[in-house]
C-alpha cells in the first residue's frame, strides 16, 4: 500500500465513524466489553436462573421461568429447592471438603518438590540454567490429557511401576496404585509442577547472594541462613506458585476422572456427573453457583489483596 492510499484509508475510517456519531474511543471499549458481557457475564445470569428451576423431562430439561396461570396472569417459577437439596445431601458437602483437602495436599507436595528444583536452577551458571528452565517448561507444552494418560500406563496393575518392582523382587503382589487418592495427588503435582517452579525461580533468581554471604560471615550455618534469609525473602514466590497450583487443582475434573477411584470425590467431578450422567441441569447449576461463592470468590479476593500489597 502506498502512503497516499494508507492516508486516505485512515481518514476515511475516521470520517465514517464520525458520521455515525461513534467516537473511536467508545468503539474500542465496546468490542471487548460487549463480547465479555455476552459470553461471560450473561452465562452466569442464566446459570443462576436455572439453579432456581425444577428439573423436567423436556427440551431443555428445566422448568420455564414463568408460566401463564389459568386466569392469564404471569407466574414466576423459582425455588431454592436445589440448594436445600445440596445442603441435605452429605455427598456435596463431602465433595467440597475433599476438593479442598486434595488441592491443599497437592499444593504442599508441589511446593516441597518444586522448591529445591527452582533453587538449584536459580543458582546454576548461565548455559545450564536456560537448559534446565527449558526442560521444566517443555512438558507443559505437550497435551495435558496425554500427560495424565501417561500416568495410567505407569500406575496400572500391570503398569511400569508394578512390573519393575515385581521384577526386582521388591514386592510379591502388585500394589494398588490406580484409582486411589494417591494417584490423584501424583497427577495434580505432575501436571502443575511447572506452575510452581516458574514463579519460585523468578523470585529466587533475584535473591542477592551478598545477603547469603553476609549471613555466612556472621556465623550462620547454611541451614540457618536458608530458614532466616532465603525462605522469608522467597515468600512472594511461594504464594504465587501455590496459587497457580491450588486454583486449577480445586476445580479439576480430568485427573480424578482418569486416575481417581469411584470414591475420590471432587466437586468438579460431581458437577460433571450431575450434568452428563444424571442430566439434572438445575442441580448442576446450583453446584456451580455454590462453587462460585465458596471457591472462586475467596480466590479472587485473595488475589486482589495480594495485588494491592504488591503495589504498595
Amino acid at each position: 500500500m502506498s502512503a497516499l492510499t494508507q492516508n486516505v484509508l485512515w481518514r476515511g475510517t475516521a470520517r465514517v465513524m464520525g458520521l455515525v456519531g461513534i467516537r473511536g474511543r467508545t468503539l474500542v471499549i465496546a468490542v471487548p466489553m460487549l463480547w465479555l458481557l455476552l459470553f461471560f457475564l450473561v452465562p452466569f445470569v442464566v446459570l443462576g436462573r436455572i439453579s432456581l428451576a425444577e428439573p423436567m423431562i423436556a427440551r431443555p430439561p428445566y422448568s420455564p421461568l414463568w408460566e401463564r396461570g389459568p386466569d392469564g396472569s404471569l407466574q414466576i417459577i423459582a425455588s431454592l429447592e436445589n440448594y436445600r437439596f445440596l445442603l441435605s445431601d452429605a455427598l456435596y458437602r463431602n465433595a467440597y471438603l475433599s476438593s479442598i483437602r486434595i488441592a491443599v495436599v497437592s499444593t504442599v507436595f508441589a511446593l516441597l518438590i518444586g522448591y529445591p528444583i527452582a533453587y538449584f536452577i536459580a543458582r546454576s551458571p548461565e548455559p545450564r540454567r536456560s537448559v534446565l528452565l527449558l526442560m521444566v517448561i517443555l512438558p507443559f507444552w505437550t497435551s495435558f490429557l496425554l500427560r495424565v494418560y501417561a500416568w495410567m500406563g505407569f500406575l496400572r496393575r500391570e503398569g511400569v511401576i508394578n512390573n519393575t518392582l515385581v521384577g526386582l523382587g521388591v514386592i510379591d503382589e502388585p500394589l494398588v496404585l490406580m484409582q486411589t487418592d494417591l494417584a490423584v495427588y501424583i497427577g495434580i503435582v505432575y501436571t502443575y509442577l511447572p506452575f510452581m517452579i516458574l514463579p519460585l525461580y523468578a523470585n529466587l533468581v533475584k535473591l542477592d547472594s551478598a545477603l547469603l554471604e553476609a549471613a555466612g560471615d556472621l556465623g550462620a550455618s547454611p541451614m540457618v541462613t536458608f530458614f532466616t534469609v532465603t525462605l522469608p525473602l522467597s515468600l512472594p514466590g511461594i504464594v504465587a506458585g501455590s496459587m497457580l497450583v491450588f486454583i486449577p487443582a480445586i476445580g479439576e475434573y480430568v485427573i480424578p476422572a482418569l486416575l481417581g477411584g469411584p470414591d475420590t470425590l471432587m466437586i468438579g467431578r460431581v458437577l460433571w456427573d450431575e450434568f452428563f450422567s444424571s442430566r439434572d441441569w438445575p442441580v448442576a447449576s446450583a453446584v456451580a453457583i455454590v462453587m462460585l461463592f465458596l471457591v472462586v470468590a475467596p480466590i479472587m479476593w485473595l488475589q486482589s489483596v495480594q495485588n494491592r500489597r504488591a503495589l504498595d
Binding site: 466489553m33 475434573y253 441441569w281 447449576s285 488475589q303
Partner: peptide, 25 residues
C-alpha cells in the same frame, strides 16, 4: 471495574463452571 473483573475472572474460573454456564446460555 467491570471490564477488569471480566478480564481476570476467567483466569481463576474452574473449567466446569465456564463450560456449564456457556452451554446453558
Amino acid at each position: 471495574m467491570l471490564l477488569v473483573a471480566m478480564l481476570t475472572a476467567p483466569l481463576v474460573m474452574p473449567e466446569v463452571i465456564t463450560g456449564l454456564s456457556l452451554l446453558l446460555m
